[in-house]
Design a protein around this nucleic acid. Sequence first.
RNA 1: GUGGAUGUAGCUCAGUUGGUGGAGCUCCUGGUUGUGGCCCAGGCGGUCGCGCGUUCAAGUCGCGUCAUCCACCCCA
Length: 415
Amino acid sequence: MSRIQRIKGFADLFPPESTAFTYMETVAREVFGAYGCQEVRIPILERTELFARSIGEETDVVQKEMYTFTDRKGRSLTLRPEATAGVLRAFIEAGGHEGVTKLFTCGPMFRYERPQKGRMRQFHQLDVEVLGAKTPQADAEVILMLWTFLERLQVVDLTLEINSLGCPACRPAFHAALRSFLEGIDLASLCEDCQRRTTTNPLRVLDCKVPTCRTATVNAPRLLDHLCPECATHFAQVRAILQAAAVPATINHRLVRGLDYYQRTTFEILSGAIGAQSAVAGGGRYDGLVAALGGPDVPGIGFACGMERLALLLPPHRPQPMDFYLAVLDAAALDTALLVGQTLRRHGFRGETAFEAKSPKAHLRQANKLGVKTCLLLGEDEMARGVIVVKDMATGVQTTVAQDDLAQALGFRTA
RNA sequence: GUGGAUGUAGCUCAGUUGGUGGAGCUCCUGGUUGUGGCCCAGGCGGUCGCGCGUUCAAGUCGCGUCAUCCACCCCA
């Protein structure tokens, strides 16, 4: 029969990768929980319009990267390409919008792109959204939360870049300044994409990595020079808090990010050690987005962290060996072995019992491979006497104990 | 969507100017009658990604195709 293989860009995770994912989620719950985040679990399928309206019709994500299809009733549905839109939709639907709400979620996201290192079509994000807080302290806390999480995972050599995109009050003026600057330069000095962007989305010209575009725009106006007084103060306060908390943030004037909903503070965490897809986490403030999705006019700020990329940076995690392996030397002992294993696990031991009778040599090789502390041997002799052989794999010392006393005997060994 | 590289045993990879496919690791058995690691011996295991072509002969050359990886792009 022909084999059915997994589809492009979708990964099967086995240990140690799957273990790493569980570990990241555990630490995330601990750290984000310590800041008051509540975990939410939301659908991975939403109405397409949710993403079109939040992420932006003109973005690459919406235009060419979404898994969109019509269901049996002809509705357009989309596998979520990011988490924020769904979390906000859930927040709005749940009601109770007073005060500050801090939400955490994690799970798979889907984007139809060519896979490469650190980029899958199904990938996973850890996501935090803080709704109802507009002060710079909220921005700073969100960034600190993320930074603390990464420190806790012992991930090293990360850089934090921040910028401010301004707000609806001051961004038009910047746009105008940028537009007139772009009109003043030679179009031919820009790449094809940027030539188009000068009219469709001038901001993204700043974000282009093509060297010629970089040199052509060295003297482009800077967002930070065009902030309104409120935005400038807000940004200055965020920076001051980060500095006081000893979090090294560098300003990247070209950090504009690819989702339309961001305003004011934006940030990215980068690593030079994971290939071209260097952004490990990213986020920013999105005041106005909740209202744009039909909810109350509450401000928001959040971030997403890519788990595949983070996993590439995690220090190796060696699995904890089991406590015992129960070797069965005689087929007549298989049932007893299984029940002995059950008893041991009730006493808190971790281990496996053999499903087939084999030679002591074969079993001990297995026990050795598993790296267990203790190998138990059960054969014809032991069955007849109601005992079991306990072998310490490190010392090679063997003792014989009554089956009924086994848990207690092992307790002393592992104490 | 574009470009480059790579597809040979379960895994990592050799395979010379075309001439009946190898190594290491893994796995199994044995080296003690019921005792592991190290070592030794033997064994299991391959449609050489797939198809077409060139040739007396293709893992090796050509074309096509599929898959994977990396990069562009985009972003977490």
